[in-house]
Design a protein around this nucleic acid. Structure first.
Lengths: 225, 225
DNA sequence: TTCGTCATGTAATGGGTTACATGATTAC
DNA sequence: GTAATCATGTAACCCATTACATGACGAA
């Protein structure tokens, strides 16, 4: 029993804060909204949902049935379960959002956490952003010394790989700097276009450049496949 | 039995091509030379080594003992095993390097493969680089359409996350373009400084800028801890 | 009536980590 | 003599995927 996954749990609670959903739809949202960095399959999701129910953070409702009716009540035909966040679940999510976990955890799951920044305070956002930045800077330092130590022994391709890796991390740090700056500047709730070095900057006093290069969205399905 | 890991197997063979090593040293090399992208623990490495021996791609030698003496021969005290690549192993490595695997595999392990580019032909390098580029471009396309479809439903932070993710992939594509260009230009064996937009470019006719910002390397240990 | 997609689940497998157990060798 | 680091290994997890099994429902 219990298939806790940490970040999946977190993301599920976060998505259900907006509105109740089927597991199926939940997975779709998971793989579009957050899916650039992370993807989940049913084999992970469904067991996780059961575990969250067992913890009292979610309740199951049969699709369309009034609240409180257990999923098993619909005998004969297959269950269609809508998951809804409980008050305890909401509380738990907010704790996770604010307290967060050990360094490694925060590091690995930064992307997903960031996606839920809209649901927390500026203080928390600052703490998370600065935490990540300082960890990336440490890592950069380690990479630098390690590279200096073993430079001679490496061939050009290995070296180029290291260089490129470091450059990527450096760029990530710069991105964080911009985000932190924009939080500090007080344009609350919105990471500004300053992060986007784009032709497309017109007013830039709060708000991202919209619809750069994309066609109008159409309301069809969401499967990234 | 058999704990095959694919990429670890590949990397081990590649490192042992240079010279025989202890498992312990192998792991260190694994986590410095290739370690920006990948790290391995003993729990993975040692079983993998045993499997490679079973396949006939490596042989074990007791430290210092003449070739052919099995590790078990040193009774009483603990085995110290040096792994050496066999002819069959060398052959197998070269096959892996050239043929490569399915798309997903190539994608996930590109970094490690790249680190061994020095040991293969320009043809193979080009194929791998172009393969990765086209897969990244497909991914970019998917991200673009998916973003266009669900833009309205996302808050600013999620949006910024997507934008940043896409930008990173775009940058990766540009890097690949530069590498491909430099391969094509024929400066064989060396990815050129053109990939590094750095103040530090002096001669740039083949070769990376050396020792930028690092102190002299000292020959101490390698543990990144 | 059949195809796509909605919808829920499980079993087998994969690929890895952490923590531990054990002991030799080196440097101080 | 004692601390660090070299060196090998294993057992107990963890987190996830793939492939499969099952079935409802709407549209062509």
């Amino acid at each position: 029993m219990s298939r806790r996954s940490g970040i999946l749990e977190f993301a599920v609670l976060g998505l259900l804060r907006e509105s109740p959903m089927h597991g199926y739809e939940l997975r779709k949202r998971l793989n579009t909204s957050l899916g650039v960095f992370r993807a989940f399959s049913y084999g992970t999701l469904y067991p996780c949902l059961k575990a969250l129910v067992a913890s009292g953070w979610l309740i199951e409702e049969t699709d369309g049935a009034p609240e409180g009716v257990p999923a098993a009540a619909l005998t004969g035909r297959r269950a269609k379960i809508v998951y809804r966040l409980t008050a305890a679940g909401k509380e738990h999510f907010e704790e996770l959002l604010a307290h967060s976990g050990p360094d490694a955890w925060e590091d690995e799951h930064f992307g997903v956490r960031f996606a839920f920044f809209g649901q927390t305070s500026r203080d928390v956002r600052m703490r998370v952003l600065e935490g990540r930045r300082s960890r990336l800077e440490e890592r950069l330092e380690r990479m630098r010394t390690s590279l200096a130590r073993s430079r001679e022994r490496m061939d050009d391709y290995t070296l180029e790989l290291q260089r490129h890796g470091m450059e990527s991390v450096e760029r990530e740090v710069r991105w964080l700097n911009e985000l932190i700056e924009s939080e500090r500047a007080g344009r609350d709730q919105r990471p500004t276009g300053s992060a986007a070095q784009d032709k497309n900057q017109s007013g830039d006093t709060g708000g991202l450049p919209r619809h750069r290069g994309g066609s109008r969205p159409d309301p069809s399905d969401d499967t990234t496949t």
